[in-house]
Design a protein around this nucleic acid. Sequence first.
DNA 1: CCACATAATCTTTTT
DNA 2: GATTATGTGG
Length: 757
Amino acid sequence: MQTESFLPKDAPDTPPWLQGLNAPQKKAVEHCDGPLLVLSGAGTGKTRVLTCRLANLISTGKAKPWNILAVTFTNKAAREMKDRVANMIGPMVEQVWFGTFHALAARILRRHAEAVGLKANFTILDTDDQLRLIKQVMEANHIDVKRNPPRMVLAMISRWKDKGLTPDKVSLADASNLVEGSGADLYAQYQQRLLELNACDFGDLLLHNLTLFNQYPDILTDYHQRITHVMVDEYQDTNVAQYLWISLLVQKSRNLCCVGDDDQSIYGWRGAEVANMLRFAEIYSEAETIRLEENYRSTGHILGAASVLISHNETRLGKTLYTDDQHGEKVRVNGFWDGASEARAVADRIESLARHENVPLDSMAVLVRAGYQTREFEDVFIRLGIPYRVIGAKFYERQEIRDAIAYLRLIVQPADDLAFERIVNTPARGLGAKTIATIRNAARQQGLPMLAAAENMLSDTTLKPAARKHLAEFVNMVITWRGQLEHIPHTELVMTVLDESGYTTMWQKEKTPDAEGRLENLKELVTAMDSFEDLPGFLEHISLVMDGDNTNAGGEVMLMTLHAAKGLEFDVVFLPCWEEGAFPSQRTMDEKGASGLEEERRLAYVGITRARKQIFISYAASRRVHGLWQSGIPSRFLAELPDEHLIEETEHGMASGTAKPVTFDHMPIPTAASGYGPGWARLQERRQRGFTPSRAPVEGTSALTGQSDYAIGDRVFHQKFGNGNVIAIEGDRLTIAFDKAGDKKVVAGFVERVHKS
DNA sequence: CCACATAATCTTTTT
DNA sequence: GATTATGTGG
């Protein structure tokens, strides 16, 4: 972090929040009233400014803690900010409104839910539920779900919500675009269903807030009195709805402080509008703008490379980052023949840095463009026994966790039809598609939630006796659990539910390699619940806090997407897979044209600026993507890097990737044309000769023996590769023929012996 | 109604 | 390649 050696000495009685700041930082911290925009480049002490400013506001008495709203994008950022402020001002921090846009909006909405037609205990849906719901709506309208993927329709609706558009406003704007012109209609019906379900999706949290503030001025006035100062982090990532929300909240006080970096705007695909930032000074004419340009993180070479790269973007406010740090090592660019050799080289480098230069593993990171690209590295790390951690595998999105949560949701909120449909026949209890359809129709006809309709149905002869019996059992279970809600601790209730519903048994009977892991996850869920007051509190947490246990436990190489890396920093950063089409992503360029390319470039900039000391960028001439070999050419971003900050090495016989010949001048500037790039058709064509390998039977359960004396022929289990037989041994490395994954070399500590049956 | 086998679909990025 | 939707036989 920031070194303070070359800063002017502070007076002895300077409070902590004014210590060790450079001139622009200090100016921003001491600014109290009116609109302020802080343009904060990568590694220039953005969080520090935010937290110190907050502390200063309180200590000078300009604002009471409960008058301050501090908004972030991620829960992690909110937590970090709160912790750092707490260190300066102590327990007063509890009174400050910290949170993500979504969490704060949810908090406000719970208080006034009735005003927008919801009940205070509304459910917040996850993406999975949203998809199922929109699909139902589409099917009800006899729209071909094959031709119009629900994902697309949902994406469209989300973009509308990001823009703050309710269905009535959309119909004028661009109703005719998608789904045979019925887009706006579907949107309206989808919203109607959400109200009936007493549910919200993510976009609604903000959208309902806007409706609330616009329709009930007295409620807004109330918040104006409560909140006099608003601070926003990562302002470049705000969408229109969030912009409007903030505008409404500060329209009286005009005490708005936004911090961000237009060069790090990487969420355009999610509706973020850099324009919010670019036009700040226009919208708030009296606004002050402060630039933070002194970088305290990276060496000169790293910063130089990043600055030149980002200078290729046209639309930016423009900052000139500088550092007093030494030049350090040059950026290394490496070319490889294929992905395997690239991954291998990265792993080797990590091992050697760790062994010979004492670089801690957790200060090194591999940052990739897309999630699936981590796999190749995982494979090598496993083989070489390098401990690693993948950030982004989200705990709460796993199937078993969602199922368990659906049970709980239905108990807390009987109108939650989506939860009902999800678990009414999971585990299988003789309530198939036909029965469910019958219940759904009855519910729709009577205007009741499905659970209530099902209950009514038990006393007539709509259903065949067998189905009725099974349904009765299910309904009675739910009723019993609800009765216990008030009387037994919620952690105990979950265990009861998972047990009595037969859900645990279902996984115990399952004989796939990951069944055991799923049971572990369920136990973890119970543990996680322990730290919450009650069930509703926990459910609120999981719907808003999708980042699970992504703690830096230490001693592990970090493996994550570039998006996930924003805001983090590492001594050594690896940026692999820099090939045209992969990075910059062809799809982004197809969809968003030149602005998409600029966003990709910002992503590259974010990647490079994560590094403190050393950076390795690489590309491969060919790699296997989804089972097919594809050749690639080096990313145009490589050619944009300045030679004076680079060292380039390629595998024997390869051409340079950073040479700046005609190559990239010929590269067409993408236009926002529809359809896929040229590689797509080829891919489809070659797909035809695929064959499905026969599924190898998986043997029974495994047990941990703790022994490492394996013999050739032993049957072993591996967390990732499943079961296999040992076919060779050298030291602690075993060569194993896996049933599914083929032959792999694996460190003995990563496998468990399977008891022969 | 369930279990299994085959076919289709999809691969950014996420609060 | 891997997961998920659909179809078929019991």
